[in-house]
Amino acid sequence: MNPKIANKIADAVIYILVAIVVIILALLIGFILITGIPHISWHFLTSVSQSFSAGGGIRDQLFNSIYLLILTLIISFPIALGSGIYLAEYAPKNWFTSLIQTAIEVLSSLPSIIVGLFCYLLFVIEFQLGFSILSGAIALTFFNLPLLTRSIQESLESVPDLQRQAGASLGLSRWKTITGIIFPIAIPGIITGIILSAGRVFGEAAALIYTAGESAPAISYSNFNPFNPASFLNPMRPAETLAVHIWKVNTEGVTPDASQISSGSSAVLIIVILIFNLGAHYLGKHLYDKMTASK
């Protein structure tokens, strides 16, 4: 075959494959949004869910999802940042480092139901955290850590060594070079990692059923005392998330409008993830500009 034709065929195959991916994505998101958006209303977003009668909303589930995400990031980001920096900047290349790498990869491929059950036994039962946002956040940290650590490590490693040498040659210690130069340059990559892991948190259901629970007791949004059981900030209350809610209304929902709730919730979930992604990108860019530009 002459190289020109081979090249044309390769181009065509690549375009077709990309088209397939885009079409699948468009169909999926389109379907969810088209079936879901008609059911979204202010009432749907701001009222509590109903167990038996129609007309329930997803207010608490929506809030729980976001709160859970924040808690999970608060727990997992510092740990992931530390291990990412260690692996990228400090770890010598030896068997111990590759053992850590392998362990991280194994952790990321654990089935979520197993992590869920493990966390149920350890945190919910043994440590008596009960079905709570905190238990859920800890379980999600298990999924989050490998993803986050990996992406932080990779974004740090992608900063050219020339920058490290430039820092060192100015008489900066390794730590100052990392915090002052390497980390700011790596921020966009780190943000991408956060977004990817956040998607996982928003979408996770199996592990949360056993940890955060599948009930959403009435909570008060005017009670800012995190130790009060009725407060929306209390991390020790059971908290059904949006993804769990979708799962529940589809499997054991007895409300007459279960399928509408499910479609509406799915659309809301996708929209929230989209907003979060855009927001995180914007924030990351802002942070990058702030840390790298003058003033």
Partner: peptide
């Protein structure tokens, strides 16, 4: 000073 100009990607 290095072979490749390596300013930080800052101002």
């Amino acid at each position: 000073v290095f072979q490749q100009p390596n300013p930080f990607p800052f101002s």
